[in-house]
Amino acid sequence: MAAAAVDDRLSRVFAALADPTRRDMVARLCSGDATVSQLGAAYDVSLQAVSKHLKVLEEAGLVSRSRDAQRRPVHLEAEVFDLMTKWIERYRSEAEERYRRLDDVLAAMDGPAEGEGAVS
């Protein structure tokens, strides 16, 4: 996947998760698939509003909907979290490396450790 496509997909995912209701829906879907009605029961909003939230999540690739007889369960697409985790991990690793280098510089500035370089 090209870097621009990954960045665009990440932008959609993070934008979708910027809303607390959508984050809560994702959290609820972690325990299993649910219908729009089942998800909507947890919120004081119309089913139309729930459907709009799900549409944003679906466009970001976080959820999918399937048909199961009369039901249309919503399914969490966990592989999207792998994409997010890789992106976050990359920058976390870079930040940790910078802190390690800073620790080394600060340790060197403290001078020799006790007992080192002392003349008897």
Rank of each mutant, 00 (worst) to 15 (best):
V63G: 03
A60G: 10
A95Y: 01
S11Q: 08
A107T: 13
H75E: 09
S31I: 03
D33A: 05
P20N: 02
Q70N: 15
E59N: 09
R12D: 12
S46P: 14
R9G: 03
L106D: 08
E58H: 03
R101V: 12
A60S: 10
A60V: 06
A27Q: 07
V63K: 01
E59A: 10
Y91W: 04
V36H: 12
S120D: 05
C30Q: 05
A49F: 13
R90G: 14
K86G: 13
S51N: 04
S11N: 06
L54E: 01
V105D: 15
M109H: 07
R71T: 07
A78C: 13
L17M: 08
Q38P: 07
E89A: 05
L102I: 06
A41F: 04
V63F: 03
V26C: 08
V26L: 11
E114T: 11
L57D: 08
D68M: 12
L106R: 09
T85W: 10
E97D: 05
H53R: 10
L76G: 00
R28W: 00
D103G: 04
L102D: 07
Q70A: 13
D44S: 15
E89H: 05
A107V: 07
A78V: 15
D7Q: 07
G115I: 00
S11Y: 14
R9S: 05
E77D: 12
E59D: 09
K52Q: 11
A60D: 10
R71P: 05
Y43T: 03
R98W: 14
Y99P: 11
A27H: 02
R100S: 02
